[in-house]
């Protein structure tokens, strides 16, 4: 069952087309990573899901309703953390958490206390004195103290220190264990890799890739380091092989996943002395999709 189902969603601000036909599905119980460069449309999509921006066209189903028309009913079943939290400077953090909890329709007090402790947040301080990270914690504690089926997290950890980042990851893991669904927009790729079952990459208002991380890896190249007994003539000219460099009989190159078999067939008769194949790092994966100037398959093909 899909918790979020978006088809051909577009959104224009005047003449600016922020979203140009987004297709995105988030299944129940999964942690879905939502990544993309700045200004790609992540926050716009999430705000449309929250019903605070109105879509220009397309279909959206959130839980079992329409995010614009059924906003209030749906919001009782979801929790949201924005990436840039502004608070009322004259209210204390504790007051704000309780207020948000009341607006949700109640929060779990013991869970709140536990979260305050884990995030090491002093709730008695006026929020005007909080640092960026502490303001972020206020929104995180409020959201995680609320009982919800779906958590919409829009760069929720910006400004958190690595210790708090770890606490955040624990919290998301707990939510997932409880069978809840999470849509996590983030720039921290290690966070995405650690937490997400599936990932969607958005660029210039369109989803350019969607799938599990291993599926996405499959779409891109691995790095091969090989040492052979005899010279591998013509290896660099094979279809799907890039960035060839050679030192004596040691070759280093990257290769498309679908060209791997051909490459191995060519190498086998040449007496392989050593061989390492590294899957693409998540960074490389994202660089390929984020980057504008990098060609279709990336790199400089030979």
């Amino acid at each position: 069952m899909n918790v979020i189902d978006i088809q051909k969603l577009t959104k224009s601000f005047g003449s600016t087309r922020a979203l140009r036909g987004i297709n995105l599905t988030v299944r129940q119980g999964e942690v879905h990573g939502f990544i993309g460069p700045n200004g790609a449309g992540k926050s716009t999509t999430i705000r449309i899901l929250l019903g605070i921006l109105r879509k220009t066209s397309g279909q959206i189903t959130l839980l079992d309703g329409d995010p614009w028309k059924d906003a209030v009913r749906l919001h009782r079943r979801l929790a949201y953390v924005p990436g840039d939290v502004t608070l009322w400077p004259d209210l204390s953090g504790g007051e704000i958490i309780d207020l948000l909890g009341r607006l949700h329709g109640g929060l779990d007090v013991s869970r709140k206390k536990q979260l305050l402790e884990r995030f090491q947040l002093d709730p008695a301080k006026k929020s005007g004195t909080y640092s960026k990270g502490n303001r972020q914690k206020v929104a995180l504690v409020a959201a995680f103290s609320c009982e919800a089926e779906l958590y919409l997290l829009d760069e929720p950890t910006s400004g958190l220190d690595p210790l708090m980042e770890a606490v955040f990851q624990e919290c998301v893991a707990e939510i997932k264990k409880a069978g809840k669904t999470v849509l996590l927009s983030s720039h921290i790729l290690s966070e995405v890799e650690a937490l997400c079952d599936r990932v969607s990459i958005i660029r210039q208002g369109q989803i350019v890739e969607s799938g599990t991380i291993s599926q996405l890896r499959h779409l891109t190249r691995s790095t091969v380091n090989v040492e052979t007994g005899t010279a591998a003539i013509g290896l660099g000219k094979l279809y799907g092989v890039y960035d060839m460099s050679r030192k004596g009989l040691k070759y280093s190159f990257s290769v498309d996943s679908d060209a791997m078999t051909k490459v191995m067939e060519m190498l086998l008769p040449l007496e392989i002395k050593s061989l390492t194949v590294e899957p693409p790092s998540l960074e490389e994966l994202f660089m390929r999709h984020y980057g504008d100037g990098i060609g279709e398959k990336g790199g400089t093909a030979k």
Partner: peptide, 8 residues
């Protein structure tokens, strides 16, 4: 935005 994401 923070407020409206709740049941408001």
């Amino acid at each position: 935005e923070l407020i409206r994401a709740y049941a408001v």
